[in-house]
Amino acid sequence: MERKKGFAIMSYNTMPERREGPVDPMPNPGSTEEGGGPRRPEGDSPEKGNLLKRMKKVDPKQAERYRQRTGE
């Protein structure tokens, strides 16, 4: 089934970078050494295409095999 409606399909490569985060920080009453507010996580960021590679590695049958017992 093709999606006929909804917002336009957005190419992965046109995804805006979120590295800077918004100007308004999350209140941070306890203050941390890094300060509060949304921002990118620590560590090196892999290349953009890595997430698509990660997606392609997912076994298409994985959800079919996935079974859980009912919880709350």
Partner: peptide, 13 residues
Amino acid sequence: EAEGKAWRMTAEA
């Protein structure tokens, strides 16, 4: 998130 595209509101600390 590791690619910096998720909105982080916590610091690692």
